[in-house]
Amino acid sequence: PAHSQANEDTLQQRLQALIECARESWTYAVFWQLSYDFAAGEDDGGGNSSNTPLLAWGDGYYKGEEEKPMKKKPTPISAAEQEHRKRVVRELNSLISGGGGGTVNGGDEAGDEEVTDTEWFFLVSMTQSFINGSGLPGQAFSNSQTIWLSGSNALAGSSCERARQGQVYGLETMVCIPTENGVVELGSSEIIHQNSDLMDKVNSFFNPSN
């Protein structure tokens, strides 16, 4: 457990450094970690002991968006949808703080404020995983190739559901960079063009053998 905790901490530090030291304005970074779905092997009922490789949530760092009053907002969500998001955040706060009905460090502010589209996208991402070869991270990993989508048309026109979902939630750029044992994904609500600087940083932060 101590090793696992240390690994989580350094993963968080690397994701944070990646975003905070970047010239561009990234909204979030996620590390999709290569894992094996042991449950899938048990469920097949055919005695097949091979386990399915998948990319599961390793860790994530959410920075948020810069306030730009002139920026065109995506389609506004309904009051009911916003209420649903707030309720989920309140419940998650309660879950994390021990189920006592309170929130993290007390106070209700965090559950009553609007949950932005990119916050919601990041939260929902925690529940997702990708079979190797499927989805944006899965394709990047199986092909050992960076996927860089910039502009809402590129996201909306992608064959990957995750990219289309990202566009709906206001992202303008999504990038998946494969590493030795997973994929680093970054998203931004601004258009960021492909550059080798980011890929070099990911390479040096996330590939231990380099």
């Binding site: 989580e8 968080q12 949530w57 860790d59 994530g60 959410y62 948020g64 989920v88 955040v89 419940e91 998650l92 706060n93 879950l95 994390i96 929130t103 993290v104 460090n105 106070g107 502010e109 965090a110 404020e113 916050e119 990041f122 939260l123 925690m126 529940t127």
Partner: peptide
């Protein structure tokens, strides 16, 4: 929300804590 796996709890706690800090400083 019992389906949130235990392993992701740390990320979730961090996200919620930082969100609270952002809202407080806004």
């Amino acid at each position: 929300i019992p389906s949130v796996p235990q392993a992701r709890k740390a990320s979730l706690a961090r996200f919620l804590e930082k969100r609270k800090e952002r809202l407080m400083s806004a």
